[in-house]
Design a protein around this nucleic acid. Structure first.
Length: 196
DNA sequence: CGAATGATATACT
DNA sequence: GTATATCATTCGA
């Protein structure tokens, strides 16, 4: 079942980042259904976080979706090539977001292999935010879309993860963020995933 | 390890 | 309107 709006609209973006681990990110693009278990996330804590695009309340055409109420997608292009998928959280005008960095395939493996131009499943299929978005067919076309729609959404499949399997560490590629660069806002669930 | 990639923000004319 | 520095990265040695 789809996670409800309220799930995304809470205040604690760090807690939400942890809870997204083990949830199932789903897309239906070009008629191809794909499902992925989320195994790595990064929190971007709004206007006070120097690593965030919305730092200091910077509001542009690109960052606009982050200022909407939680429960929508924020997709942007990085390094000219990679589409990165984020989940918008918190209430309107509080631009918190969570970057989905990695996952494990669950359904729609054929479509993912096709999009990634690969023949076999390995850890690079969904390893890294750019690869993950590509495998799922996510592009900037989806930015600002609601997660209650039928193109992209997140489900709770009762996948079992215990808190101590989650490892927190500094975020990737944010050296420029000064004192915020070392904050442990990255969450990984490397341990094998079991299904109920 | 290092190059490649192009949209975006920002600072100009 | 135009320029250019800057990237929440990937891929191939």
């Amino acid at each position: 079942m789809k996670l409800p709006q309220e799930f995304y609209r809470r205040e604690d973006v760090l807690q939400l980042s942890r809870e997204l681990l083990g949830k199932v990110l789903c897309t239906r693009i070009d008629g191809e259904l794909a499902r992925v278990v989320i195994t790595e996330t990064e929190a971007y804590a709004g206007v006070a976080d120097k690593a965030s695009h919305a730092y200091g309340g910077r509001r542009t055409k690109r960052t606009e979706p982050m200022f909407a109420a939680g429960g929508a997608a924020y997709v942007y292009l990085c390094y000219g090539i990679h589409h990165l998928f984020n989940v918008v959280s918190n209430v309107e005008n509080v631009p918190h977001a969570i970057l989905i960095r990695a996952g494990k395939p669950l359904e729609g493996v054929e479509a993912m292999l096709m999009r990634r131009q690969k023949l076999t499943v390995d850890r690079t299929l969904l390893g890294g935010p750019g690869s993950l978005a590509k495998a799922l067919g996510i592009t900037t076309r989806l930015t600002g879309k609601s997660l209650q729609g039928n193109e992209v959404w997140i489900e709770d499949r009762q996948i079992l993860l215990t808190a101590n399997e989650i490892v927190a560490s500094p975020r990737i590629g944010v050296d420029y963020a000064e004192e915020d660069a070392l904050r442990p806002y990255r969450f990984r669930a490397d341990a094998q995933i079991t299904y109920e």
